[in-house]
Simulated scan of single mutants.
Amino acid sequence: MAHKRYSPENAALLLIDHQIGTAGWMHSGSVKEMKRNTLALAKAAAALGMPVILTSSLENEAQGPLFPELETILPEAYANRIRRLGTVDSMADPNFHNAVKATGRKNLIMAGLLTEVCVLYPALSAVEEGYDVQVIADASGSGTKAGDDFALARVRQAGGYVAGTIQILAELVEDWTTGAGPIVQAVSADLYAAAAAADTENQG
């Protein structure tokens, strides 16, 4: 399957179940890094004027609320978030499905918690429906590294793509020097700086 370049004009961002409690179940990688990348996606989407859909599952249970920073970065999307009542595959939730369809975009950027549950199944459903899907692996995470690997492999087998946060930010920006380019470049630079700081801390 030939990949077509994603742009702010043809893509939508879906952030699935980035909830405080659910983040505590993630052990496939760094929760701090996952959260930084998630917020970077949100900031870039806001700067680029892309459609964003936020969804949560069982906010009043152990999963808890969405990351509070998302309300600051994406106030409208946060206010309009789809609050599911336990549906695993968010594409099976009529409100979420209709919101995705209403964007008019066929290219979907997905990230969420947990990859092996609440990202995998909507990604598979979206591909089956004819959407082009990129799962952003480092803005997602699973209970184990193996669980993450298995889920991402299944996305690829179904015809979806797997990418990293900085990769998709670079893909979305036509030129770092025009429009929202400088803002997105600054967001990317912050991620590089955070990675360098973490590496220095680990070496120390």
Rank of each mutant, 00 (worst) to 15 (best):
D149Y: 13
P122G: 01
V117I: 15
D148R: 15
R83K: 14
A180Y: 02
E76A: 15
E171K: 09
A153M: 12
G159Q: 12
L66V: 03
P68K: 06
Q157M: 09
V162Q: 10
M110C: 01
T144D: 02
D190T: 14
Y78L: 02
L172V: 03
S188L: 01
S56F: 08
I82C: 15
I109C: 07
T72H: 12
I183K: 15
E76W: 00
E174Y: 02
G130Y: 11
D190N: 15
L169M: 14
A126M: 10
A111C: 09
N107A: 07
I166A: 10
A79L: 10
L120D: 06
P94T: 09
P68Y: 08
A151R: 10
A146L: 11
E128L: 12
T178P: 05
G141H: 03
K106Y: 00
L113I: 12
T144Y: 08
E116S: 15
S90F: 13
G160L: 07
I109Y: 04
L85T: 11
T87G: 12
D148S: 14
A146M: 09
L85W: 14
A79K: 15
A151S: 10
P68F: 05
D89R: 13
G147T: 01
N60M: 10
A139R: 08
Y161G: 02
V187C: 03
R84V: 02
E171Y: 06
K101S: 09
A186D: 14
K106T: 11
S125D: 10
A189Y: 00
I183Q: 15
A146Q: 12
V133D: 00
T177W: 00
G86F: 07
G181W: 01
K101C: 05
T177E: 10
A62N: 10
M110P: 05
L172T: 03
G147F: 03
D190I: 07
L70I: 04
